[in-house]
Design a protein around this nucleic acid. Structure first.
Length: 951
RNA sequence: GCCCGGGUGGCGGAAUUGGUAGACGCAGCAGACUCAAAAUCUGCCAUUCGCAAGGAUGUGCUGGUUCGAUUCCAGUCCCGGGCACCA
């Protein structure tokens, strides 16, 4: 009986499906474990072998945890709203819901062949009204909440309303509008004014703001969807545009998002990326008065002064000029009459420049003097005020104090415009470049003279606060997240606009379903396609629906909660259920979501926690980023302007263009010339210069040379023709081989190239395992003989290794350990159930089909009633508990040369603690004793007390 | 420029975290079985000198600590990723 993986895998996949083997109950009596994959966007192109890598790892871990006795939640679903489906609809007129449905079907077919243990009864789709009903509901919770800075948590907006009605905003800590208002003023406000004030506090709020507008895509993009001034998708130019938008007040959570990173197990680099994105900096806000006697300056402008943000208040005596962002509100009023024309010209120039130019021409120094002077609050020095585009309106206060001796940009600016530079750091400043050191001792710095800069920072802030001209201030680089898209294929907002005021839909009207449309063109004035459906958008009572839709990250910000309670019609997720499942214990996915999805979902979790809908405030306990599986691309070299191709070794003698070709036409590096000619009509008559210099033309045969292709490791993708389809691999080698090989390739977190040839090794291993049970000639060969000590040792070493490796996610070394184990059992000619049964159970998470089949075969003779793959067999119960005596190491002896003498270096394994060992006097008797007893356990070597025995 | 990772055979990668570097697999070479092929099995496989026994060198590079360093420390070079007029 041969290892017929096709039949075996088909049989068990069907069996698992029919028996609902992997459906999970919310059985609170068992310990839980939640293993989650980042759910996929169902694209039309289908899977390549890189996609399932993370799913295989999570599946192995889920199955392993099940065998360990946990109730494991391991769901899967689809992030099915998104741009590509809509783009496709624009081109073909196919409704996104139709293409999405088709893509999901293809996707599912491909996934099912790999033998995953997902509980499909819990499947979610973000585009399903029964799902986005709750996305809309959570949006309303955000809309109806504000962030209480004194309690440091979100609270219902009604409580804020009560505060306003009772005492206005004057007592509110960290209130948003500077001035604040009293109870009387609030009472005097009309409905619209109250609406606008409350809007300033809502966690989901609407506001006019500069947004990243992409003309080609006809939509607004989030900051992380814009890379170097062009759109992440398609690379189209992006400009700034003022529009009414929805935002999430994620900035209120900046500090908690930062602190939460300490509690979760993410990789250091991922935490670093999030910290970077949040961009917390500590410094001071300082108010500079404007010189009163400036020509044409009105009195009130002088009073207001210019507020700057700096992280280096210690350098305040080195301020030689001030710079305002061109968009700064004071620019117009500060400019003196004689500078008016120059400033206007400069503002015009800045406006003409796109974001892209501003970013790519960073080194170019531009600016313009306003003619006004500010006054250094400490020494009264008059400082010229400039405007320049290197200062950004959106960060800090939009104005800086420039210290050329310690900041390179300020230095460059000062040199360019010939502004004299004050040196406050003595010899640390060489006059040719700025020195941002914090180690200097201050000079020319008034009351800070002689102080080390590090101490001066605090001293300066204390003084500023004492004199009430500034205060300690923390700043974040992160901005509130744009939450509207002018698009069709997304969640509609449950909001109605009436007389400039927003009104939420009552909960009973949810879901607000996405209306069916025939056309997907953008609506008027940059509005979304929904604005075109006037009968939907305009309501009888005179109101108008919000016509933008929510962004892609809306549904993915909370989907992991819905898996817990997917069929609940009255709540997004029952509190008891979410208390049971709690955090995702293991989350597996790519790094590309480091600052998008992972940050937004953390924020939503914190909001839901604040409002007491769930009991934990970090969604993921541990995150593993799987690496990419790269493709090995192949190239042919076309001689420019011809239809002739030259072999890789000779390409340097010609002027050539490399051309990606399909890896399936290449055996190793050798091109299948006929396949290439059939590939595309234009190559039908292609001619070749082979590696040995021979020419090859259509119709001529008999040459011995071969065409050698060039090769390169790149990202795997259809367009590079280096994608390998998992369906083909599963067809040729089986799902178990595929699963194990993907793991065998290398560490899960690393990127590594795919090599189809290597899969043979893993496949051979599984066949070898099969032959431990079935001999080609003799048939059944397993038996119930008693195992020998040597065989037990092999088994137990493997058990220990596999458990350690699986817990550490070191799946590649685990697969190696299985191979070693089987090789050794073959050598020992061991066909004993006592050894093989535990091995199969141990292997079930990695290769579930073959394990289930062989266990079934053996069990039908010897056992019944257990099901390993479903997890009713607990690992400890299924195999003898790992016993140390079978894996003990003996003392290691090896010769070593010390100072010319040959000695024997002996490392002894001791079963003593570090402290105990250090008490032991290492004399010959002790050593003799140890060697005699062959102590074991962990190898402990005490520095300076090594045992050297002279031979 | 700043911040993270990482440099080990022809290739993917191991090494119990300071103890015989190169497990396991691929590729390669030689052989067995076979009329032949497939499948399977055996041996070799870091570099170098040597017929061999054996020797020398070897974990990017240069030093240091140590009886002993792929592992720890300092410096340096290269590769990958992230951020970037953020005051």
């Amino acid at each position: 009986m041969e290892y017929n993986f096709r039949d075996i895998e088909k049989k068990w996949q069907q069996q698992w499906k029919e028996s609902n083997a992997y459906s999970v109950s919310n059985d609170v009596s068992k310990p839980k474990f939640y293993v989650l994959d980042m759910f996929p966007y169902p694209s039309g192109t289908g899977l390549h072998v890189g996609h399932p890598l993370g799913y295989i790892a999570s599946d192995i871990y889920s199955r392993y945890k099940r065998l360990k006795g946990f109730n494991v939640l391991h769901p899967m679903g689809y992030d099915s709203f998104g741009l590509p489906a809509e783009q496709y609809a624009l081109e073909t007129g196919q409704h996104p819901s139709v293409t999405t449905e088709q893509n999901i079907t293809t996707f599912r077919t491909q996934l099912d062949k790999i033998g995953f243990s997902f509980d499909w009864s819990r499947e979610v789709r973000t585009s399903d009204p029964q799902f986005y009903k709750w996305t809309q509901w959570i949006f309303l919770q955000l809309y109806n909440s504000w962030y209480d800075r004194s309690a440091n948590k979100a609270r219902p907006i009604n409580e804020l309303l009560t505060i306003f009605e009772k005492e206005g905003s004057l007592t509110l800590e960290g209130r948003l509008s500077e001035a604040g208002f009293g109870k009387e003023e609030w009472d005097a406000y009309d409905e619209k004014q109250r609406h606008d004030v409350l809007m300033n506090y809502r966690l989901a709020y609407s506001s006019f703001g500069e947004v990243n507008w992409c003309e080609n895509l006809g939509t607004v993009l989030a900051n992380d969807e814009v890379i170097n001034g062009v759109s992440e998708r398609g690379g189209h130019p992006v400009v700034k545009k003022k529009m009414r938008q929805w935002y999430l007040r994620i900035t209120e959570y900046a500090d908690r998002l930062l602190q939460g990173l300490e509690q979760v197990e993410f990789t250091e680099s991922l935490k670093e990326q999030q910290r970077n994105w949040i961009g917390k900096s500590q410094g001071a806000e300082i108010n500079f008065k404007v010189k009163a006697s400036g020509p044409g300056l009105a009195e009130e402008k002088v009073e207001k002064g210019i507020k700057v943000y700096t992280t280096r208040p210690d350098t305040i005596f080195g301020v030689d000029f001030m710079v305002l962002a061109p968009e700064h509100e004071l620019v117009v009023s500060l400019t003196t009459p004689d500078r008016q024309d120059a400033v206007n010209e400069y503002l015009g120039y800045v406006k003409s420049r796109s974001d892209r130019e501003r970013m790519s021409e960073v080194k170019q120094i531009t600016g313009c003097s306003t003619g006004a002077f500010a006054i250094n609050p400490f020494d009264g020095r008059e400082i010229p005020v400039w405007i320049a585009e290197y200062v950004l309106a959106g960060y800090g206060t939009g104005a800086i104090m420039a210290v050329p001796c310690s900041d390179q940009r300020d230095y460059d600016f000062a040199v360019h415009f010939e502004i004299p530079i004050t040196n406050i750091i003595g010899s640390h400043f060489n006059g040719n470049e700025a020195n941002p050191t914090k180690d200097a001792v201050l000079e020319n710095s008034g009351f800070l003279n002689g102080m080390a800069m590090k101490e001066a920072i605090t001293a300066a802030i204390d003084k500023l606060e004492e004199l009430e001209i500034g205060r300690r201030q923390v700043n974040y680089r992160m901005r509130d997240a744009g939450f509207s898209r002018q698009r069709y294929w997304g969640e509609p907002f449950p909001i109605i606009w009436k007389e400039g005021m927003s009104h939420p839909l009552p909960e009973k009207d949810l879901p607000l379903e996405l209306p069916h449309v025939e056309k997907y063109e953008p609506g008027p004035e940059g509005e979304g396609p929904l604005a075109n459906i006037t009968e939907w958008a305009n309501l009888p009572g005179g109101g108008k629906r919000e016509t933008s839709t929510m962004p892609g990250y809306a549904g993915s910000s909370w989907y992991f909660l819905r898996y817990m309670d997917p069929h609940n019609h009255s709540e997004f997720c029952n509190r008891k259920v979410s208390d049971y499942w709690g955090q995702v214990d293991l989350y597996i996915g790519g790094t590309e979501h480091a600052v998008g999805h992972l940050l937004y979902s953390r924020m939503w979790t914190k909001v839901l926690y604040d409002l007491a809908y769930i009991g934990h405030d970090e969604p993921y306990k541990k995150l593993v980023n799987q690496g990419m599986i790269q493709g090995s691309s192949r190239f042919v070299y076309r001689i420019k302007g011809t239809n002739q191709f030259v072999s890789a070794g000779l390409k340097h003698s010609y002027d050539t263009n490399p051309l990606h070709i399909d890896v399936n036409m290449v055996d190793g590096f050798e091109l299948d010339i006929e396949a290439f000619r059939r590939w595309k009509p234009e190559f039908e008559n292609a001619r070749f210069i082979l590696e040995n210099g021979e020419e090859h033309s259509p119709g001529i045969t008999g040459e011995k040379g071969v065409y050698i292709c060039g090769a390169e490791i790149e990202k795997m993708s259809k367009s590079k023709f280096n994608a390998v389809n998992p369906d083909q691999i599963v067809e040729d080698y089986g799902a178990d081989t595929f699963r194990m090989y993907e793991m065998f390739l290398g560490p899960i977190e690393q990127s590594k190239p795919w090599d189809t040839k290597g899969i043979e090794g893993v496949h051979r291993f599984l066949r070898k395992l099969w032959r431990l049970f079935y001999d080609d000639l003799k048939g059944k060969v397993w038996n119930t003989d008693k195992a020998t000590e040597a065989e037990l040792k092999v088994l137990h070493r493997t058990i220990k290794k596999i458990e350690d490796d699986t817990e550490k996610f070191s799946f590649n070394t685990a697969v190696s350990a299985f191979m070693v184990c089987v090789n050794e059992l073959v050598e020992l000619k061991c066909h004993k159930e006592e050894i093989l049964m535990p091995l199969l159970i141990l292997m079930a998470p990695y290769a579930p089909h073959i394990s289930e089949e062989l266990l079934y075969q053996v069990r039908s003779v010897t056992r019944s009633g257990e099901n390993v793959v479903q997890g009713s067999v607990i690992l400890e119960a299924a195999y003898p508990v790992f016993e140390e005596k079978f894996v003990q190491e003996t003392a290691k002896e090896y010769p070593v040369s010390v100072n010319g003498k040959v000695r024997t270096n002996i490392t002894i394994s001791l079963s003593a603690t570090q402290e105990e060992v250090e008490q032991i006097v290492l004399d010959n008797d002790t050593v003799q004793k140890w060697l005699g007893e062959k102590l074991h356990k962990k190898i402990i070597y005490v520095k300076g007390k090594m045992v050297n025995v002279v031979l």
